[in-house]
Design a protein around this nucleic acid. Structure first.
Lengths: 169, 169
DNA sequence: TTCCAATCCTTTAAGCTTCAAACGTCTCGA
DNA sequence: TCGAGACGTTTGAAGCTTAAAGGATTGGAA
């Protein structure tokens, strides 16, 4: 996480801002926002629950699907690579938060599922997590939240469109 | 941070709304946006230049300050921990992109500075980086970009306010 | 001057992350 | 029914990340 800067081809010594493209400034600002909130959540999760964000995220995904999810499905939803999950799941199994077993219908697939202990632990964390997010977003009026949702949706669509046919290029 | 590593055609990530607080949905959407753009930049940096985002980010910071920066100053600007920089700087020195020397005024401090080779390499990457960002933001009209900038600024301020006196709590 | 707290950096341990390669399993068509 | 290719997962190498502990240096107070 970091503050990505701009080309700044001339490396002016005087004024820092530099007349970057508005798109670049927007990306930088989004990134800063995201990092700020994410870092805070990460730090508090560690301090108050001794957990990491990836672990919390995995529990959250499973909490939504009592029947469990395959690792592939999990990796898609969490937007991380497949290889990433193997160790993460392993650690959560060790902790007793989740259980893992080979799918009954496809012996290639591993299905992960919350244990009762895991569900309980997650509930406490989720409540705190929600408090934190609400607190950090408190400065926005409802209509602003609404507006932001719309604009971000548009951006997301735009970015995805730009990604289509990437390999074809 | 990536799920897009293999362009699997379909990306049905947004599933059940789950009637959460609007703040939670907003945070989730911001995070998705940020991850989407970041992952793309990361992947392309690797594919086209064989570089990572942290390395690019560090070069970008130094490109703005020809006289160089101490590692502490760098860690603040990049929003990463101090310990993080030691190895990162070491690798960039090895690559020949930057040079490092003990500060002449404070023998505790290490000052990092771009080499000419590093500056050249950075310029090429920065140009591509800017193209990518502009491309992904292309779907937004100028007035929408403006609006988004304002709302994100407000959010950032709100989050920072929530963080004040965190230790005092 | 002497001493001590603050500052700067490095090291360490643990965990997260990716990509690429490898392995087992499944599906489907010949 | 057999084989090719697709799919789900694991492994390995490399790098990023943090918190915490430790060493060097500085600057100011007694």
């Amino acid at each position: 996480m970091s503050a990505i800067s701009s080309p700044d081809a001339e490396t002016r010594l005087d004024q820092a801002p530099a007349a970057d493209h508005p798109e670049l400034r927007l990306w930088l600002r989004l990134f800063t926002c995201s990092t700020l909130v994410e870092t805070t959540i990460r730090r508090r999760l560690r301090a108050e629950f001794g957990e990491t964000l990836p672990r919390f995220d995995l529990l959250a995904q499973l909490a939504k699907v009592p029947a469990g999810l395959t690792l592939s499905e999990l990796s898609k939803r969490m937007m991380v690579s497949n290889g990433n999950l193997t160790a993460l799941v392993e650690r959560l199994v060790e902790a007793g938060w989740i259980e893992r077993q080979t799918s009954t219908t496809d012996r290639r697939a591993q299905v992960a599922r919350l244990t009762p202990a895991g569900r309980g632990a997650f509930r406490k964390m989720a409540a705190a997590h929600e408090r934190w997010v609400v607190e950090m977003t408190g400065g926005l009026a409802p209509h602003e939240t609404e507006q932001l949702m719309g604009l971000l949706a548009k951006w997301k669509a735009s970015a995805r469109r730009a990604l289509e046919g990437e390999t074809a290029a």
